[in-house]
C-alpha cells in the first residue's frame, strides 16, 4: 500500500516512448519505480540472454538477472551519462557474470600459439564466417570458450558495440581491445575446427 502510494501510475502518453536516458532522469528525479520498470521491461531479456550464455544454467541466470538489476538500481546515481544506458547495463552484466565464473571455478583456457604477427585491423571475412556459424554449433563453441573471449565476441556481434564502447566496458585501451577481439576470433575458429572440421 505504502509502496503504491510512493509510486503512482504514470499516466502521460509519452511515458512508453521515452528514451532510456529520459526514463533514467525521471526515475532519479521522482524515485517512481515505474520508470525503472520501463527500463527493466526493455532490457530484461537481453540481460538474461547474456547471463544464460555465460552461466549456462537457467536458474543461475535468472538470479543473476535479478541481482544485476538491483545492482544497477543501487548504483544508478553513479551513472555518468558518458555512455548509453544500455552500454552501461551490459558492462554491469558482463562484469557480474565474469566475477561469478571466476569465483566459482578455474577456467580451461584454450591456448593459441603466439608465433604470428597479428594485423589489428578488422577482418571482415572472419566476421562473416563467425556470424554465419550454425546456431547450435555456435552455442557449443561459445560454451567451450573462456569467459573473456566469449563476452568480447558477444559485445561485438550480439550487442553491436563499437570498439570505443567495448573499451569503456572492459576499461582497456583501443589497441588492447582490438587485440583481444582478434585473439577471441582466432580461438573461436580454432575450437570450431577442432570440433567440427571432420563433420564439415
Amino acid at each position: 500500500m505504502i509502496i503504491n502510494l510512493l509510486n503512482p501510475i504514470i499516466t502521460h502518453s509519452s511515458y512508453k516512448t521515452m528514451s532510456d536516458e529520459e526514463a533514467l532522469e525521471q526515475y532519479l528525479l521522482t524515485q517512481n519505480v515505474n520508470y525503472f520498470n520501463l527500463l527493466y521491461d526493455r532490457y530484461t531479456n537481453k540481460v538474461y540472454s547474456k547471463c544464460i550464455s555465460m552461466l549456462k544454467e537457467s536458474e543461475l541466470a535468472e538470479d543473476a538477472t535479478q541481482e544485476i538489476f538491483v545492482k544497477v538500481l543501487l548504483s544508478i546515481s553513479k551513472f555518468s551519462g558518458k555512455s548509453k544506458f544500455s552500454t552501461w547495463l551490459y558492462s554491469v552484466t558482463y562484469n557480474y557474470c565474469i566475477d561469478i565464473i571466476r569465483k566459482g571455478k578455474k577456467e580451461i583456457i584454450v591456448s593459441l600459439e603466439d608465433n604470428t604477427k597479428l594485423d589489428l585491423e578488422d577482418d571482415g571475412m572472419l566476421d562473416a564466417e563467425i556470424m554465419e556459424t550454425n546456431v547450435f554449433r555456435l552455442k557449443q563453441v561459445l560454451g567451450l570458450m573462456n569467459v573473456e573471449d566469449k563476452s568480447i565476441l558477444m559485445m561485438k556481434y550480439q550487442d553491436d558495440l563499437s570498439i570505443k564502447e567495448i573499451c569503456d566496458v572492459m576499461d582497456k585501451t583501443e589497441s588492447a581491445v582490438k587485440m583481444k577481439i582478434l585473439r577471441a576470433k582466432e580461438r573461436f575458429l580454432k575450437i570450431y575446427q577442432e570440433n567440427y572440421s571432420r563433420s564439415g
Binding site: 537481453k46 540472454s49 550464455s53 556470424m131 554465419e132 556459424t133 550454425n134 546456431v135 555456435l138 552455442k139 561459445l142 565476441l153 558477444m154 556481434y157 550480439q158
Partner: peptide, 8 residues
Amino acid sequence: KNSFKELE
C-alpha cells in the same frame, strides 16, 4: 546472417 542474435 547473425547467429549470435538468433541464439539470443
